[in-house]
Computed example of a mutant assay.
Amino acid sequence: METKRSPKNIFVQGPISPESIAKSIANHSSKTDIGGHSIFLGQVRADEKEGGKVTAIEYTAYEEMALEKAFEIREAIFAKYPLSCMHIYHSLGEVKAGEICLFVFTSSKHRKAAIDACEELVERIKKEVPVWGKELIDNDGSVWKENV
C-alpha cells in the first residue's frame, strides 16, 4: 500500500538564518550515497527605486495554495531528476536587505542532476507559487515587487 505524501511547510517567519542553512548542509554529511549538492540562496537587494532605497521586503502568501503548489512542483522535480533529497524554505514577513529569503537545496548521486533540479525548482517557485513581496522603501513608502 502506497502512502500519499502530504505538503511540507516551506515557510519560515522572517529571514532564513545562516545557522539553519549551515545545519541543513551539515545534516547531509552522514548521507554517503550523495555525490553532489546544489544550493540557491535568494537574498534581498537594496535596490534604488524612484522613491528611495529598498530596506526590506515584506513577504505574504496564500499559504494553503502556496503549499499545495510547492508540493506539486516538488513531486514533479523528484519524478524528473534522480534526487536523494530536496529542501525548500521561503520567508514570510519582513526580511531586511542583505538577509536570505529563499533557500533551495537539492542533492543527488551526481552533480548535474542536483544542479539542473535546483535551477528548475527555483524558476518554478518564482513563477508558480503564490508568494508576494512588498518592497519597503527608506522614505516610508512601499512598492509591490514583481517576480522576475
Rank of each mutant, 00 (worst) to 15 (best):
S107M: 14
E99D: 11
E58P: 00
Y59M: 01
L121P: 03
A61G: 14
V95L: 12
E75F: 01
S84F: 09
K69P: 00
S38K: 03
L67Y: 03
Y62E: 05
Q13T: 07
V122P: 00
S142A: 09
Y59W: 01
H28N: 09
M65W: 02
N139F: 07
E146A: 12
E119R: 14
I57H: 05
K8N: 12
L67M: 14
Y59C: 03
P18F: 03
S107A: 15
I125M: 15
K8F: 06
S29I: 15
V148K: 14
R74N: 12
P82T: 08
R124S: 10
F103N: 02
S30M: 02
E99R: 06
N139W: 08
T60N: 13
S107L: 15
E128L: 07
K112N: 14
D47Q: 02
T60K: 13
P130L: 10
I88L: 11
E135K: 07
T32M: 04
K53V: 10
M86T: 04
V54W: 01
K80Y: 01
N27Y: 03
S84Q: 08
V54Y: 03
P82D: 09
V54A: 01
W144D: 10
P7A: 13
M65R: 00
K80A: 11
A114I: 10
A26T: 14
Y59T: 01
A46H: 07
F78A: 03
C85S: 15
S91I: 02
K127A: 14
G51P: 00
R111E: 11
K4C: 01
G141H: 09
I100S: 15
E19K: 06
I125R: 05
L102G: 04
S20P: 00
H87L: 13
E48K: 12
Y62R: 06
G42F: 11
I137H: 09
V54E: 00
E72A: 05
R74P: 00
S142H: 05
E94I: 10
D116N: 15
G52C: 05
F71L: 04
E19C: 02
W132C: 08
S30I: 04
F103G: 06
Y62C: 05
E48S: 09
K49P: 00
I100N: 14
S29G: 11
Q13I: 03
M1L: 12
S142Y: 03
G36E: 06
E50N: 01
V131T: 12
H110Q: 13
D47A: 04
T55N: 04
S29W: 11
P82Y: 06
T3I: 07
L41R: 11
K127M: 07
S6H: 08
K53Y: 01
E19H: 03
A70S: 15
K126S: 10
E94N: 05
K53T: 07
R5M: 09
E119I: 13
K8A: 13
